[in-house]
């Protein structure tokens, strides 16, 4: 459970920042510049403070020495020197920010849709995936929106962060230079399963990426419905709230649910059959099972009839 393997220094990257997935992260030099300035001034202030406390500590018979109670030149000095320093920090931070925020003209465009509590990455061929797959070395632009509350997309290894706001689009871009797998997190608090709203960034070579995308989009045609349903269960984020092992999450578990009769929050009862599942996906608030909060948002317009059929077939298999 408790791993002290990384004690106390980090396993990868520097002490302060994780490994970067880009060759020339614009942010890192600014971070270290500020760190240096902070360390210098902290040592200066605390060093002087400790020196004065020790050197001028109160001793019997020793009276404080009279010094000037103000000195215009000195005070202007410690007004203007910090002003110049923060001016320099501002300039460095601002120019790096502009580089981080200005996408090059030849970006590969992907869409992101966030919801409580799942990520959906939408690819040019219409495929929707729960993880972000990108080709290495190419600038990627994400155009993002939320279906419910505000979320935040953060990829620590890429130093990228942008809020995702319902009712508008926000966008950000990055270029990953190293093939690998990186964390992608939600950083804007969004409710119960905020800390489970986690995905990965899979950086492939261009060939691997093309092959993955071709396969990934085809599963409804190439797989049997129940297996396609299992893929959808993962990719559309159903797993965030509905388990398949019988443990209750934010929503009821799918294990053995098909064919059962359950009490609803409004006092009625309902049999979990094909139509009930279909309605629960498209109008989640219509029949909420007793003991659960009405928190699910609709998938109306986000899933096709074939998708729903596949999901029903998958749920049937969960005995």
């Amino acid at each position: 459970m408790i791993s002290f393997a990384g004690l106390p220094l980090a396993q990868s990257g520097g002490f302060w920042l994780p490994d970067s997935a880009t060759n020339s992260p614009a942010m890192d030099p600014v971070f270290y510049l500020i760190l240096g300035i902070c360390s210098f001034f902290f040592l200066l202030v605390v060093g002087l403070m400790v020196f004065f406390v020790v050197h001028y500590r109160r001793r019997p018979g020793v009276v404080p020495q009279k010094t000037a109670s103000h000195n215009m030149l000195l005070e202007l000095t410690w007004t203007f020197i910090p002003l110049v320093i923060v001016g320099a920090i501002f300039y460095q931070g601002f120019t790096a920010y502009i580089r981080m925020q200005t996408p090059p003209p030849n970006c590969y465009d992907l869409r992101v849709s966030a919801r409580q509590w799942a990520w959906q990455f939408i690819y040019p061929n219409g495929h929707i995936d729960e993880n972000l797959h990108v080709p290495v070395g190419e600038p990627i632009r994400l155009t993002m929106t939320s279906e419910d509350v505000i979320h935040g997309l953060w990829i620590p290894a890429l130093r990228v962060k942008m809020d995702i706001v319902p009712g508008r689009y926000t966008s950000t871009w990055f270029r990953a230079d190293k093939v690998g797998t990186y964390n992608l997190l939600c950083t804007e608090y969004c409710g119960d399963e905020h800390s489970d709203m986690l995905a990965t960034v899979e950086v492939h070579t261009r060939e691997d990426y093309d092959a993955w995308l071709k396969d990934a989009g085809n599963y409804l045609k190439t797989l049997p419905p129940a297996e396609a349903g299992k893929v959808l269960y993962q990719r559309r984020g159903c797993f965030q709230c509905h388990s398949v092992d019988g443990t209750a999450g934010t929503g009821p578990s799918f294990k053995g649910i098909y064919g059962e009769t359950h009490d609803m929050a409004d006092g009625t009862t309902a049999v979990v059959d094909d139509n009930y599942i279909r309605q629960s996906i498209l109008e989640p608030q219509a029949k909420v099972r007793s003991g659960f909060q009405p928190v699910m948002a609709t998938y109306q317009g986000l899933v096709s009839d074939d998708d729903i059929t596949a999901l029903i077939e998958y749920i049937k298999t969960l005995k």
Partner: peptide, 14 residues
């Protein structure tokens, strides 16, 4: 200072 500076705030915000 890390938070007032734009580039670094993007990384450490939230």
């Amino acid at each position: 200072l890390f938070l007032g500076s734009l580039a670094t705030d993007i990384h450490v915000h939230d």
